[in-house]
Design a protein around this nucleic acid. Sequence first.
DNA 1: TGTCATTTCTCGACTGTCGAGAAAAAAGCT
DNA 2: AGCTTTTTTCTCGACAGTCGAGAAATGACA
Lengths: 408, 408
Amino acid sequence: MLAKSSTELVRQQNSALVLSALRRHGRLAHTEISDATGLASATVSAITADLERARIIEKSEQQAVSGRGRPRVLFSQRRGCGYLVTIIISSDSIQYSLVDYAGTLLDRFTEPRGEGGTATFLAAISAALTRAATRSRIDPARVLLVSISSKGLAHPAAPVLVWSPVFGAQPVDFSQALTDGWSAKVILNNETLLVAGALLEREAKRKGEGEPVLAALSLGHSIGLGIARRGGAGLPEISAPNFGHMLHMPDGGLCRCGARGCIEAYAGFYAILRTAFEVPMDTIPAKFVPIAEIDKIAAGARQGNRMAQLAFRHAGVALGNGLSRLLSLHGHMPVFITGPGTRHYDLLQAGMEEGLSQTQVVRLGGMPNLLVVPDEASLVFEGHLNLAFSIIDQDIIASRPHMQAAGE
Amino acid sequence: MLAKSSTELVRQQNSALVLSALRRHGRLAHTEISDATGLASATVSAITADLERARIIEKSEQQAVSGRGRPRVLFSQRRGCGYLVTIIISSDSIQYSLVDYAGTLLDRFTEPRGEGGTATFLAAISAALTRAATRSRIDPARVLLVSISSKGLAHPAAPVLVWSPVFGAQPVDFSQALTDGWSAKVILNNETLLVAGALLEREAKRKGEGEPVLAALSLGHSIGLGIARRGGAGLPEISAPNFGHMLHMPDGGLCRCGARGCIEAYAGFYAILRTAFEVPMDTIPAKFVPIAEIDKIAAGARQGNRMAQLAFRHAGVALGNGLSRLLSLHGHMPVFITGPGTRHYDLLQAGMEEGLSQTQVVRLGGMPNLLVVPDEASLVFEGHLNLAFSIIDQDIIASRPHMQAAGE
DNA sequence: TGTCATTTCTCGACTGTCGAGAAAAAAGCT
DNA sequence: AGCTTTTTTCTCGACAGTCGAGAAATGACA
């Protein structure tokens, strides 16, 4: 059933519009907000007055010199309105970032990922969270959101890691990482999903609207994929398919996940290693492969080593076949390739194109655009900020029963 | 960018809500509308008055006897408000249905699908359309929508068949089927997409809300798949992946589409025939296989014929592998199986489960629910009506600049 | 014939957007 | 210095929409 609408929802929607304009462009004057949102000047006045009264935005100190005329008054988010913590979990370390409501980074530190089970893992995160808050003298209750990303499969609704390279099928419930005094909402997303979201936003900024849909493919020890789509209402929809463990080849090579024939079992770093050294395909894969090892194989391949070349070719074909299936099931879209594996994209490319070219969608719609974007780390953080602040803004607006007097 | 909102959009949204309630339940009284939509009684009064003035709905003649109290006044769509034509294209025939705005079937006839190219094909449709209109003495200008379905790949935006079993990659633009005097919008959708939409609606009616997402799989000469999802705003999102021609096996059997290794080349009727009779896999597939032929093979399989059994098993594995990839890329969901091929589901089932069981998503999330729903034809028509009327209602509401006086 | 139960309709309060013009405030000009 | 110009912000009244409460309508029932 559809949802009913009312005048109050109109105000909510338009307030969200103003906040998102502020997010996208940072510090805007009254007229600029009006231009960016399409709202009438009078409406912008009403909304900014409300938001200012509610201490969500504030008139900026520094005024933009605009030449003649009445000087502009710039609005921006009130920094102290709330805080965000992002946690980026990678195979060997965990990076914590504390960000204020205006989007500026206040603190960042990285801790090695310890040994042990999920309990000690969660305890370590819990401790790090408290450390982050106390170090910047911030009351944990004022942290509105903790945004976590990891490789692996996240539960669609709850902040639970359903499968991960490290803990396997043992679920990790991150909501347990919040101790007393914390009231933040916790979200967990696949890392490459955030990359896709960030790329969609970047493209939209670069050229008006940009791609309506795109995929991000992360190449590394494991294989990740995210899809971002500009939905009907204008807000982006992002999803993280389980691409790395999609079936590539029935009864194929053994994968870390325990299944056989996953894409990752052909295109992950450990798989490239396995093929290059002619280790049997049913060998339990290496837990961790230093990137230097892969670089060595790549160097060999570039110098003519047949098995090394074959390893990359097989990886490319697995990726290409997988992408062809992606296009079959999700429609045509450009693919942005990122992650440490992009260093050896030259060795993968031919195989990928071979793996793609056979399917009907590619024969009809042509080869998809394959673009390499090496700097994965900044994309992940960008994706965190995009997603987290859109949720925070939404929550803040929705949680105010009636704007009315908030006192001054 | 988000869209701005305004009070007028609120009215549009709520009018649509009222109309959709009327669609779903048929003939409703003031209070019932209020209950179904959640709108205040006064609001329902305002909206129904508007819609009545605009001659979109009308007070029904027959009154429901409700016991004591002021008698209820039932509203329903005004039949003459507009008309809908649905065209269901199958491999050997084309079925035309004329439906009035209230959803009642006025006329239906089926014509054999002639020989010849796209031009004669379109001309035949054009002629049939005019015939449908004149036979019921309806001005073609009052047909608001022509909703077409076919197997194959439809263009996401325009009513163009990008690939079809009959015409191959030669595009068919159905908007050319409208001659002078017709002003209807034309939409084209994959047949199985409509099935998925109909199933989603059925499930929602059966139990509150029902499945949030489901897939429909159609088994026949070709293989079709549709996905229906209850979206964030409550309105269903449906999509038709190119499942039948997704890659099953690299360098595999030759498919009708010209590619190799498509799922259809293993699970379509012609593929079952090919395997059962041990015809080489690179043989150009049969244009058309009578269902009796498949029934014969199935009977043989049930009596122990090894090759016949193998044919169905291979088909099942291809479908199962394909579905496992669907779940990997779209998340877990139940699969409703329909089409003439369901008659032999008993022979396919084991292979499908084998093909599904290997992948990580299935190992983690369990085997998806596989449900057989044989009556495909009524699902297709139901899907046409659901989709068409939601579009028609939307258009009607949006196209009225300002309700105001519409005269009496 | 009068009362009752139930539904529909109407009124006033409230919230929201919009366009137009008034007010503000700095730069430029004489 | 004082006036004009220019640009931005603010304010006011008109208009559209929803909602709750209560009035009006109307057939059933005693």
